[in-house]
Simulated assay, not measured.
Amino acid sequence: MSNVPSHHWGLEPIVAALRASREELHRTRHPRGIRELPSREAVANIINGLRAALFPTHFGAPGLTDETVDYYVGHTLESTLRLLAEQIRRALRFLPEHADTPETELREHAYAIASEFGRQLPDIRALLVSDIQAAFAGDPAAQHITEILLCYPGICAMTHHRMAHALYRLGVPLLARVINEIAHSGTGIDIHPGAQIGPSFFIDHGTGVVIGETAIIGERVRVYQAVTLGAKSFAADIDGSLVKGNARHPLVEDDVVIYAGATILGRVTIGRGSVIGGNVWLTHSVPPGSSVSQGKVREGERADAVSSRVQP
């Protein structure tokens, strides 16, 4: 006979109260009652499969040879793209234009998107290699490419972002957001999938970096930890709801360096070749070749009243 005491949890009123919360008081369900949601776990597995297909010697099966690697990549892509198509199908149902799309048509559309995404993988890999090379060139502590691929959080975040951005452009924003939020959770780097980022992008250290939805970043840009490319304000409609989709984040031109803790807000342009110093707060455009640093605090002057110094 068991010595474990018997407990009565009184679950009936708890279950009833939770049902009332779900169905009446604090509803969180989609207005159309969609229950088949994208799976975060499945998306994580998809990203792992795609990463293995892109860099099989680093993330693929052990013991791959020149004779077996292509078979491995093809087999991995076949299974991974099928999983991706299913998650795309689930995500498409959340778009208003697909509210009443027949299931067969929605499934075919999802497979078409997954197929197009697959065709883009060589270009995505090329962009990622440019990011890896930028990290190797920009970090004197980097010993070799393998270290960067396996260890650098900025490369992990950009791997997710390059894939998520492709899906965002293919019309699957919910799935794209899930992909980038997985990277955000693991690296502390928050990049919206809508952000447009050119080749050879290097995030050094990375923790706390935030890049907003409508940011546009050129080529060979380098940013450090805790950099924010954010919005200065949010337009609202007549009933106070935020207007979605407005261009509200910075434009960063080619060859810009943004040091740790800098905050750049609004639809401003950081001119080509500029250097933005650490902890700068910037809400206006600067011309190409600018050097922006914190203003020095003179005796008796409040720190928060001192503007940044811009030297073209």
Rank of each mutant, 00 (worst) to 15 (best):
V178I: 15
S185W: 13
I191E: 04
V172D: 12
G206M: 07
Q196H: 15
Y168Q: 13
H165Q: 11
Q196I: 15
F202P: 11
V178K: 10
I211N: 10
I191G: 02
R177Q: 14
A215G: 02
S200K: 13
T214I: 03
H165K: 08
L170V: 13
G198W: 11
Y168F: 15
G186I: 14
P193F: 02
I179Y: 00
V209P: 01
E181R: 14
I191W: 00
H192T: 09
S185R: 15
L167R: 08
P199Y: 04
G194S: 10
L167S: 06
T207V: 00
T187E: 00
D190T: 04
Q196D: 15
F201V: 00
L174A: 12
S185H: 15
G171F: 00
P173W: 02
E181L: 12
H205K: 08
T214C: 02
I191S: 07
A166V: 11
E213M: 01
P193R: 08
A215D: 06
P199E: 08
L175Q: 03
V178F: 08
Q196R: 15
A195Y: 01
G188R: 01
I211P: 09
T207K: 08
E181D: 15
I182R: 10
A183K: 09
I211Y: 00
A183T: 10
S200C: 13
H205N: 00
I189S: 03
T214S: 07
V209N: 05
P199F: 09
G206D: 03
A215N: 01
A183F: 08
E213A: 03
A166I: 11
T214M: 01
F202K: 10
S200L: 11
I203Y: 04
E181S: 14
F202G: 11
F202S: 07
T187V: 10
E181G: 12
D190N: 12
T207F: 04
G186R: 15
D190K: 04
P199R: 08
G212M: 04
L167C: 08
T187H: 07
G198V: 05
G208N: 00
I182T: 07
P193Y: 05
A215L: 08
R177D: 11
A183N: 03
H184I: 12
E213C: 05
L175R: 06
H165P: 13
Y168R: 12
V178E: 06
V210K: 05
D204F: 06
H205Q: 06
A166L: 06
Y168G: 11
Q196E: 15
I211F: 02
T207S: 04
G194D: 00
G198D: 10
I211L: 01
G188P: 02
V178D: 06
V172F: 05
L174R: 13
G208P: 00
G206W: 01
G171W: 02
L170H: 13
V172T: 14
E213F: 01
T187I: 05
T187A: 09
I203P: 00
R177N: 13
V178N: 09
A215M: 05
H205L: 03
T207D: 06
G194L: 03
L175T: 03
L174D: 10
A183Y: 04
A166M: 12
I189P: 06
I191P: 01
N180D: 14
G208F: 03
V178C: 11
